[in-house]
Amino acid sequence: MPRYFFDTYDGERFFPDEEGQELEDTEAAKREAERALSDMARDGLPDGDQRSFIVSVRAEAGQVVLRAALSLVVEYPSRAQD
């Protein structure tokens, strides 16, 4: 089974994945990246009004095979009328 590495960025810090995970294929790696984004957002809600979370998935040879991102933005539509 191929090994995939999940490097993450939480809007402030970059965390390279040194261990990786053996997964069936790129589609399984995509599902894992989506799960990681969900966890990152739940664990690291922004103190400010926005934050972006990114997971870059590398194959064993080092090439990035996919990148997934999630942006959280807080807006105050009623304040625009104040």
Score class of each variant (00 low, 15 high):
residue 21 Q to M: 12
residue 19 E to L: 14
residue 5 F to D: 13
residue 38 S to K: 12
residue 34 E to D: 15
residue 53 F to W: 14
residue 55 V to D: 05
residue 50 Q to S: 15
residue 79 R to P: 00
residue 45 L to V: 06
residue 9 Y to D: 03
residue 51 R to N: 03
residue 78 S to L: 13
residue 29 A to Y: 03
residue 5 F to H: 14
residue 64 V to R: 09
residue 74 V to S: 00
residue 76 Y to Q: 06
residue 60 E to C: 02
residue 10 D to Y: 04
residue 48 G to C: 02
residue 56 S to D: 09
residue 15 F to M: 10
residue 17 D to N: 06
residue 49 D to R: 00
residue 24 E to D: 07
residue 53 F to K: 08
residue 53 F to C: 06
residue 30 K to H: 05
residue 37 L to G: 00
residue 1 M to Q: 07
residue 23 L to N: 14
residue 63 Q to C: 02
residue 23 L to F: 09
residue 74 V to A: 00
residue 13 R to D: 11
residue 3 R to S: 09
residue 22 E to S: 11
residue 7 D to R: 15
residue 72 L to F: 09
residue 43 D to V: 02
residue 54 I to L: 13
residue 26 T to R: 11
residue 41 A to R: 13
residue 18 E to L: 14
residue 5 F to Y: 15
residue 46 P to W: 01
residue 53 F to N: 04
residue 60 E to G: 05
residue 34 E to H: 09
residue 16 P to M: 13
residue 62 G to Q: 12
residue 29 A to L: 04
residue 34 E to Y: 08
residue 25 D to W: 01
residue 46 P to V: 02
residue 51 R to Q: 13
residue 55 V to H: 02
residue 33 A to I: 08
residue 38 S to N: 09
residue 29 A to S: 04
residue 20 G to C: 11
residue 80 A to L: 12
residue 66 L to C: 03
residue 4 Y to D: 02
residue 71 S to H: 01
residue 65 V to K: 02
residue 68 A to P: 03
residue 62 G to I: 08
residue 47 D to T: 10
residue 18 E to Q: 14
residue 52 S to L: 11
residue 39 D to M: 09
residue 74 V to C: 00
residue 81 Q to F: 14
residue 17 D to R: 06
residue 60 E to A: 12
residue 79 R to E: 11
residue 69 A to P: 01
residue 77 P to S: 03
residue 11 G to S: 05
residue 59 A to K: 04
residue 64 V to G: 01
residue 36 A to S: 06
residue 64 V to D: 04
residue 7 D to N: 15
residue 79 R to F: 07
residue 22 E to K: 12
